[in-house]
Design a protein around this nucleic acid. Sequence first.
DNA 1: CTTGGCCAAATTGTCAACAATTTGCCTGGC
DNA 2: GCCAGGCAAATTGTTGACAATTTGGCCAAG
Lengths: 236, 236
Amino acid sequence: MSTDSTSAATTESPFVLEGRPTAQLIADQLREQIVQGAFLPGQQVNESVLAVQLNTSRGPIREALQRLSQEGILVNKRNRGVFVRELTSEDIREIYAVRQALESTAAEELLASPSETIEETCSVLEETLGEMAKQVAVSNWQEIARLDMQFHTSFVSGTGNSRLIRSYKTLAAESRMCILNLEVSYPRVDALVEEHQVLLDLLARRDRKALLRAIRLHLEKAVEDLTTQHDKALGA
Amino acid sequence: MSTDSTSAATTESPFVLEGRPTAQLIADQLREQIVQGAFLPGQQVNESVLAVQLNTSRGPIREALQRLSQEGILVNKRNRGVFVRELTSEDIREIYAVRQALESTAAEELLASPSETIEETCSVLEETLGEMAKQVAVSNWQEIARLDMQFHTSFVSGTGNSRLIRSYKTLAAESRMCILNLEVSYPRVDALVEEHQVLLDLLARRDRKALLRAIRLHLEKAVEDLTTQHDKALGA
DNA sequence: CTTGGCCAAATTGTCAACAATTTGCCTGGC
DNA sequence: GCCAGGCAAATTGTTGACAATTTGGCCAAG
């Protein structure tokens, strides 16, 4: 992954301009690569090599890296560079505590929305869930992790509250990092699909109290799984 | 406020370097100026003039502006520049809905913390509240707004949850913008101090249920005041 | 008088070179 | 053998210049 010609594979688009903000495209690419584990935690991300890999100069790269630093998936050490953040068990608890707060609020707002909005959200969630089931069948963990977070992000996006969505997306990226850091992090995948199906059903049924409770339990269980795996990995 | 020599007054520090991340210092300065109303909503923020005002080049300025754009107090229009965000009544509702979610979670986490942490937080809040009372006496609205948000930010900071704090600080800045946009936005200042005193007392007394309720009412009332003033300002 | 396109000004987007700082190694002395 | 000091390499931080794009005004044709 150094500077050999095969690194061109990481450059997904030869020309970076698509008529949209360039640095953001780079940031999105990098974020995706990072949460997929292309960069190891603690590893330094060099501006210059990224510039040549993405066929651009350091300027846009700097902007993208700063953006990701602000999101929290990179850390910036003055005059040293940016590094992929290493997440501790405490970080996991923090992230999921805030996620619970935001998802609960999203549930409240969704239930207060017109039926049309709820139904549209449900159909989106259903589609994601179907895709998730397929990927579970072939044990594609990376895709499962992505779809897991896509499910939750779509749930929150259903509210249309842009601040809620913005805050949540950051946490979603961090969550994917948590999951990826732990290799096989889904103890039982069957339960995973089933749990999300429950969330979807409760939303469709407008069962406020049960939905809030299910969200809490779902996230609490995730924290438990993640921290357990995390501490185990540390012990190994 | 154009390019005359008096604009040097906006440059609070002749030398920007203090051994800390430079762009962040600029961002902090700008954020403070913006939430204080030094830039009007919708106004364009020019990179070049800022560069000469702050006695630096466009590079760090760009980074600072991008950071503030990501926080949401500036909006970036491709090839046009960055502008101070104009907030609508809908924005106010969004912001305060998320604030309610985060502050409620902060309350829960605080109450689950060791007594030591709670007491320390209370003393910090008390100090801010005392300062707020002083500024109320002299009707210094700008300082009142700052202390209002400092109170809430300190409350959330008491949890030590860095993600919670990070998300909240963004909303706090946006809230100050809401307040500033509306000139005299505190209908009755006495009620303001009193309400915060109630929050502090309930935290000190560990009255979970009453505290959560008080937070909700406090923020709901704020939304009502702000949107009323906002719509009135639009009608004028 | 209105409308269409063209032109120029201003501003951001990008780039490559230069400066400053940190880190690790190497050498010299104790 | 160990430690202190300095030196060199690498990386980021900063700067000024250049390129691209949008916008508003101007002019002419209908």
